[in-house]
Design a protein around this nucleic acid. Structure first.
Length: 226
DNA sequence: GCGACAG
DNA sequence: ATCTTGTCGC
């Protein structure tokens, strides 16, 4: 698939900050989902001592959760890891992978936050706006905000709050297992986002989409040094 | 000034 | 994210 909103990735940190503020106005927070036939997961992994990385997008059939397509892109990170500017490090590689995709996903589950971000423009929002596609932010840990501890049962959740604003949900996907952080990426409401994440996390802590992408990325990483 | 800080 | 040792659970 082809990016709809493109911009330069050769940016200083200051320019990246400004771009986030500008692009954040393009994020859609309401449900604009078609029939969800394909759900995609994305992940990136790094080669130990270098900035070489592998990005993967895995498309699953939404009803059977079977893998429909897997694409990989090898790349070199050109931006450092800076909390709050995460997308400028990983998105260029993910875009290369998406450009190889033959199936257009109806929904993308991202590995990182969406609106639960200092400028309300985490990786999930950025990816969503670049392709103008529905995305969900799904993080293993918290970047920003405060929340009560959700109940121990799968499906329990508590709002994640920053500045008196609900920026996401802390969601328990498995009984007694650490909850995860779900937030809106683009064109999906928070309620719908949590519904999907819960549905995709019926067996493990993380969504099946994320697990498949992680698996694809690490398989390629091993193949690199042989 | 000090700590916190997606991956 | 990646590295690492021991421990627990299926």
């Amino acid at each position: 698939m082809i990016p709809k909103n493109v911009h330069s990735w050769e940016l200083s940190e200051d320019a990246a900050l400004k771009l986030q503020s500008d692009l954040s106005s393009k994020v859609q927070v309401d449900d604009q989902l078609e029939e969800v036939r394909y759900v995609a997961g994305v992940d990136v992994a790094y080669e130990k001592g270098s900035d070489k990385l592998v990005a993967a997008v895995v498309v699953l059939d939404a009803s059977t959760l079977g893998v429909v397509e897997t694409v990989i892109a090898e790349d070199v990170a050109a931006f450092p890891y800076v909390p709050g500017l995460f997308s400028f490090r990983e998105l260029p590689s993910l875009i290369k992978a998406f450009e190889k995709l033959e199936h257009t996903p109806d929904l993308v589950v991202c590995d990182g936050q969406g609106l639960a971000h200092p400028r309300r423009f985490g990786l999930a929002c950025h990816l969503g706006v670049v392709f103008d596609i529905p995305t969900i932010g799904c993080g293993k840990s918290r970047l920003l905000g405060e929340a009560n501890v959700p109940g121990e049962k799968r499906g329990s959740f508590e709002p994640l709050i920053d500045n008196d604003e609900i920026i996401g949900n802390v969601l328990r996907t498995q009984d007694g297992i650490n909850p995860i952080y779900v937030s809106v990426g683009h064109r999906v409401s928070l309620e719908t986002a949590c519904d999907w994440v819960l549905r995709l996390s019926s067996k493990y802590r993380l969504p099946e989409t994320t697990r498949m992408a992680d698996q694809a990325v690490n398989a390629r990483l091993k193949g690199l040094d042989r």
